[in-house]
Amino acid sequence: MAKHEYAFYPGCSSQKGASASNYLTSVESMCKTLDVKLTEIPDWNCCGASIGYAEAGELPRHVMNARNFALSEKNLPGQEIVATCAACWLGARETRERLTHSDTLMADTREALKEAGLTINEMPNIRHMVEVLIEDLGFDEMKKHVVRPLEGVKIAGYVGCQTNRPFGVDGESFENPQYLDKMVEMVGAESIPEYDMKVTCCGGALAFSEPEKAQAQIKDIVESAYDHGAEMIVTPCPLCQANVEIYQGQINQRYGTKFNIPVMYYSQLMVVAYGGSAKDAALNGQVIKARRLEEIAAKPVKR
């Protein structure tokens, strides 16, 4: 039996061929090393994300998340739900809070769920993968498995918004959370605690609808990483990852910059440090290749 077991809510962006499929691949490798068993909630659906607000309304949005709770309770009773995506985690946690605090909303949700033949009896705990790593396993346990430290690599920890606000991870400050820097240190790399754009918004969904506004944000985030001597950026959020990575070419055209900095997930750094291959860490999923990590991943492991 695995040391830790959870009901897994992977979310739309992590599916095969989707924008964060590399995140899922690396999380799976990471969990194998750490003996964490994730069982996918059968037939899970989209959380609705924050950007659906024009038509989502209050109850329909919560009902979408509640369906996942009900499916989890039915198929994986007693397990906490773990999400890897910031928006999935936030959406589900928000629904958990609202339903817990309002009997009316809870009753209405149960009535709607009945139409799908489902119900909720117990409210599940909703966790982010980073919370599981830090709170349930701890830094010492995570560090034990490092066999290939990322020595000399300087990495800017970009926390972003939704894994930070409004719920936060491990009771950290909203203005200057430290956990991502600690994770960078844990894998043997060099963190940049003074990276001043670590909680700046990447523009979220506006990167699609009003790119000039989002790209102004992204420019600041990337520029500050360069100013602090970073070789790469690391993040726990799929939208942060995509937004900060894939528009660097357009930003270069717009602002005359020469940005070309890789943007990684924490799980990719961990897989390489744990002795995994470039394939295990899904390094082939980067639009801007992380050459330095590829080189490290090609080195033999001293065990």
Binding site: C12, S13, Q15, N45, I51, E55, A205, S209, E210
Partner: peptide, 20 residues
């Protein structure tokens, strides 16, 4: 963004998952 917001909700509720 008003347009995109409505589009997103229709997209994700149509089949239950986002089609990027």
């Amino acid at each position: 963004t008003r347009f995109f917001s409505g589009l997103f909700w229709k997209n994700c509720t149509h089949t239950g998952r986002v089609n990027e």
